[in-house]
């Protein structure tokens, strides 16, 4: 092989690898990202049944209903709008009514989020940032960290 051909081989190889990586990323990004909405935003959007979303807000006081086995239903609120969530599994350590929560899963046709993943805050200071932002939008944010 001549010098030129060798160089060409490396350049082609490098471009192929980079191209493959970029292509894969684009393709994967199209199908594998999940959008986050506050309950108010979700109400304004038409989400097709089966589309995965993440919602964040507070667990509405008095909305937690225990069903058969580990099935639970609760509502997530940003004080303006509520979203009903159904979940079958073990709730996280700090899941309580009135506390911040993020739920992720597909929307069903009746507007209920069939969560397969529920996240609560880690400690008394920490609030999922998405929840904090959703609450700030509604002007009901009371936590710290607002101005510093």
């Amino acid at each position: 092989m001549t010098r030129k051909q060798r160089r060409l081989a490396f350049v082609v190889g490098a471009l192929a690898a980079i191209g493959a990586a970029v292509g894969l990323s684009m393709f994967a990004l199209r199908d594998n990202i999940v959008f986050f909405y506050s309950p108010t935003e979700l109400a304004a959007k038409e989400i097709k049944p089966g589309v995965r979303v993440r919602i964040g807000g507070l667990v509405k006081e008095g909305s937690l209903v225990k069903g058969q086995g580990r099935a639970v239903a609760f509502a997530v609120t940003d004080t303006a709008k509520d979203v009903k969530v159904a979940y079958d599994g073990i709730l996280p350590d700090l899941f309580r009514e009135g506390q911040g929560v993020v739920a992720e899963g597909p929307m069903s046709a009746d507007g209920v989020l069939r969560a397969d993943n529920v996240l609560a805050k880690h400690d008394e200071k920490y609030m999922p940032r998405e929840v904090a932002d959703a609450l700030k939008k509604q002007g009901v944010w009371q936590g710290e960290g607002e101005k510093k």
Binding site: L29, D31, V34
Partner: peptide
């Protein structure tokens, strides 16, 4: 890097919040 920074960049520029999770990384 793309999977980690894309959500941050998207939020900074459009305000839209997304999460890029395990499916993206497994696939790429």
């Amino acid at each position: 890097l793309v999977g980690t920074l894309y959500p941050l960049a998207l939020e900074a520029f459009t305000g839209e919040k997304i999460s890029v999770g395990a499916p993206f990384f497994n696939m790429t």
